[in-house]
Design a protein around this nucleic acid. Structure first.
Lengths: 366, 366
DNA sequence: GTCGTTGCTGGTAGCGCTGTCAACGATCCT
DNA sequence: AGGATCGTTGACAGCGCTACCAGCAACGAC
């Protein structure tokens, strides 16, 4: 009775404590570290909270404890299918935990990333997930100075800020080219769009593989800074054909481009794989049902996001992983579009680091 | 000097106020309503804040003001391309504003939605964006009791909770079928997956159009609760063919299914559109570059999200839109897959409500 | 028996900001 | 000229929670 209620009529921690017959601070502890309470008080607080329908006020908690329960996520794109899989993994992992996700889109700009980073850091996030390893020096400094766990995702490189999870785009591209070599292809073109750092490294892998074989020619490479799309794949392939009519295979920096190339081949009545082989990157769901089915390099996108968030949360809660850098690997999924035998979908080359576990990608799961 | 600094070394509002030679509350006002200050103090506070690199503490603000600057967004899926476009629109609109987006995934479950809604509402969001019009009665009650603006997106229906933006899936499906009728098709199958309420209403539209023409047969409809995918499109189409070998057109509840149907036709050497016409739904980017190009019903997904967030922010700031329910319409984009003349891509039927402005969809923009 | 030590509990004092109200001078109206 | 009104500013008192430290009982070691 004597208690004044907040104007919103909300239940406060004090009410719960009163009903449970304990002090507010004890009730508070129940929500943060139940083990610290005696069993008797624990059950009393629990039932009192349930009875009143108590929901903690996160703003008050954040203010008092000087830290938030927010995980900041910086990704370069919301459109790209690749990131929606990663994101789904992150959100799934965060569910059930007490952390919430704060997402921001850098639009492939490291300057924008720096700005957002500054914004995030000012709110003292519990943890941070950032895409890639190409931060500005300023961003890098901020990340290193940050007093929260950080995971870099999407690729593996030297000098992790903290934790890191991804795979080598360079090696993956080399594996794709090796597969094409194995199928007897020699004049292999490269088609790439957007040309963000990861696509760039795929190009580097392609170039090195081709050079190793003494087959590299600059004219085999067609790229653009334009955002990727299926239509663009067709257009870039058209360019490539004009420059190098004699090519016998195309390695596409992603699957949308590969699909565009496939359609363009159909339009031009170029037989795939007899005249031109096609290899994509990411192994999106549609690759397996295209006609012909399309070879691609499978990447563990969902698992990348999911593991990153899981590791981050563990680290926040003080259980740092014994293995802070995790290589999730990749796998060349050989399908009809690059098979001289027109076999269907059995795995070919597989590259990986320490932890190359291939899990079923729950594509289109929800 | 006498000022004690917070242990984190952070700049507080009080420091800014001191440097500017004003009271803390005046400095506070500068950040919330600069117009209320005299020009002199305004510039003083502004330069002081910049000099110190002040960043407001959002938790403290939220606690003191009893409201957050968070917009809650409830969507049923993170995978579906449709929602990634909507989300991009929402994030783009929220950028620059002082509101941040809190996203949650209901996984197509209205019970999960109810749970998340309760969670969100407890934190007093500044506004809420929810998907669709099929909430539980409990959710509905909570939404109506909420003291923040709310936008329902993705479809239009009776009794909006507050604001509403979308289009009629029923009418859109009817328009698609009308287009197929106009092209001379009669035995039109329906292929649908997931069967969420919006897909269900597309089916209803299909059924009513077919019944109006006296052409409806239950065996023409193949649906599943399974999540949608390209591969599934092929499988469902295979089912449909087995049940109704004589069909001359297929209306797919989304574009992934349509692509799967196209591939399956190619696999079976069924000529499109000569033997079977295909119409999809949403007009994703790849529809225009498939071979043959695929007819689809274009929906304004990016604009839906963008306008919803913009309207919501305006409403939060006290400027309620004169038109709380906005029909963004749709447009049947006729392409080769359903054209008896094999024409390419000129618009056919177009259905809409009040505001059927067709904007260029910035597909794959970032 | 005294002195830690451990396990649990509570009191106090803020966290950094804003709502509310009051005060003040300037301006306006009759 | 007097009062009302407006625009601008500041003092005060929290918002709901937790960090910190102190207290207290139970227990074991010497």
């Amino acid at each position: 009775m004597g208690r004044k209620r907040t104007k919103s009529g909300k239940i406060r921690l004090a009410e719960v404590a009163e009903l449970a017959g304990v002090s507010p601070i004890t009730a508070s502890r129940f929500f943060r570290n139940p083990e610290a309470l005696s069993v008797a008080k624990r059950t009393r607080v629990e039932s009192a909270a349930r009875e009143l329908g108590y929901v903690p006020n996160l703003a008050a908690r954040a203010l008092a404890s000087q830290r938030t329960e927010v995980i900041g996520v910086l990704i370069p794109s919301l459109t790209n299918n690749v990131f929606s899989d990663v994101l789904r993994g992150i959100y799934d992992a965060s569910e059930g935990s007490r952390y919430s996700i704060q997402l921001s889109n850098t639009r492939y700009s490291i300057l924008q990333e720096e700005k957002l980073l500054r914004l995030f850091l000012a709110q003292k996030p519990a943890g941070l997930i950032v895409t890639g390893i190409d931060q500005t020096t300023e961003s890098r400094a901020m990340l290193e100075a940050a007093d929260c766990p950080i995971v870099q995702i999407m690729e593996i490189g030297p000098n992790p800020v903290d934790m890191m999870i991804g795979f080598s785009h360079y090696d993956a591209a080399r594996a794709a080219i090796a597969h094409l070599f194995a199928q007897g292809h020699r004049k292999i073109g490269f088609v790439g769009a957007r040309m963000d750092p990861r696509v760039q490294r795929r190009l580097d892998g392609y170039v090195s593989a081709m050079k190793d074989a003494g087959l590299f020619e600059q004219r085999l490479v067609v790229t653009t800074a334009t955002p990727t799309s299926v239509t663009l794949g067709g257009a870039l392939f058209t360019d490539l054909l004009a420059r190098q009519p004699g090519i016998d295979a195309v390695f596409c920096a992603n699957d949308d481009l590969a699909l565009g190339v496939l359609f363009e081949c159909r339009r031009r009545e170029i037989a795939v794989p007899e005249q031109i082989a096609i290899v994509g990157f990411n192994d999106l769901e549609f690759m397996a049902s295209a006609v012909p089915t399309l070879t691609s390099v499978r990447t563990n996108r969902y698992e990348m996001g999911n593991t990153a968030a899981t590791m981050l949360i563990e680290a926040i809660d003080g259980r740092r992983p014994e293995q802070p850098v995790l290589d999730l690997g990749f796998k060349v999924i050989e399908r009809q579009s690059s098979s001289s035998r027109r076999s269907d979908g059995r795995p070919a080359a597989s590259g990986a680091g320490a932890a190359n576990k291939m899990i079923a990608l729950p594509n289109g799961q929800d």
